[in-house]
Amino acid sequence: MVRIIDIIIILFFLVLSIVLIFKPYGYEAKKLLLVVEQDSYYIPFKPGKYNLYSQVEDIYGKKHAAYKSIDYIIEDEKVQVTHSDCANQVCVNTAAISKCGEAIICAPNKVAFIIDCKNILKVSK
């Protein structure tokens, strides 16, 4: 039923998935990256309750149009989406994120929260 070649192929995929899960996603300070449609920017990673109903202010004070029906909270350096108007509710059901490379994705709304420790946007310090 199962041959050596089967085991090798399955092991290859398993090892690849473990590498992708545990590979370091950067060593810089944690930043919260918000992706809305084609726009992406860092938003304040401070405790509180927030939403994306209107404009969102990034860490530099610049305002970006979001206009998405999404609520989220930041607590103990963890981000959790508490409300979304999409029917799938994948982002609401995703556990709170806190580690580098973790993300909450609401694909139908084209919104993602990513814990970035890699300085993806190449923002100068």
Partner: peptide
């Protein structure tokens, strides 16, 4: 939908 997906462990 989400352009930053490759930077995550998803």
């Amino acid at each position: 939908y989400i352009k930053g997906l490759i930077y995550t462990n998803i």
